[in-house]
Computed example of a mutant assay.
Amino acid sequence: MHITGTHPSHLRAFFTQALSLVSEMQNQPTSLDGLTGALKMNEDVVKRLDLEAHPMVVKVREHVKGGWRIKASRGSNARKPFTKVFLCKGLEQITVQIDGSILDHWR
């Protein structure tokens, strides 16, 4: 959620409620690329969990600086995973996995 600004889909209700307690709705886009999402995690939670040092966050930030855009899911009715972030740049598509590794396609 820190990366995409949206809740992942298919989380158990307990975890969705926990995310709701540590986040707030915003009036501007909240994804790391500043283009989508409306949820922002509370700054104290981001700091306590050291999310900015998480391998997935680091790798997504690197790609966003290179002109990549974040997609919360592969399509309008597709899942929004919490272990992957989909990025696109023109027709190129990559997936950043939870460990910061990159797949050269969306999976």
Rank of each mutant, 00 (worst) to 15 (best):
P55C: 02
G90S: 10
V60K: 01
D44H: 07
S9C: 04
Q93S: 10
N77C: 05
E62A: 07
W106M: 11
V96M: 07
V85M: 04
I3P: 06
C88I: 12
G90F: 07
P8T: 00
R74I: 07
R61A: 12
F82R: 05
D50I: 04
C88N: 14
M41G: 06
D44V: 10
K40V: 13
D50K: 09
S9L: 04
A18K: 02
T30K: 10
R79K: 09
T83I: 06
T16N: 08
V58G: 00
N27R: 14
A78L: 04
I94M: 11
R107G: 15
S73A: 04
V85W: 00
V85L: 02
S73L: 00
C88D: 14
G34R: 05
S31T: 04
T4N: 06
T95F: 03
V22R: 01
N42F: 12
K47M: 15
V22A: 10
N27V: 08
T4M: 06
A78Y: 02
G37H: 06
V85I: 11
H2N: 15
L32V: 09
F15L: 07
P8G: 02
K59P: 00
L19F: 04
V57R: 03
T16D: 13
L11G: 00
A18H: 03
Q97R: 12
D99C: 09
K40P: 01
F14W: 09
I102K: 09
Q93N: 12
V45F: 11
G66D: 11
K84C: 06
V46M: 05
L11W: 10
W68V: 10
A78P: 02
F82S: 06
K80T: 13
I102L: 08
Q93V: 10
G67Y: 08
L21Q: 03
G66T: 05
V60D: 00
I70Q: 05
G67F: 07
L19C: 00
Q17L: 14
T36Q: 14
V85Y: 00
N27I: 09
S23H: 02
N77H: 09
V60C: 07
K89N: 14
D104H: 15
D33E: 14
H7I: 01
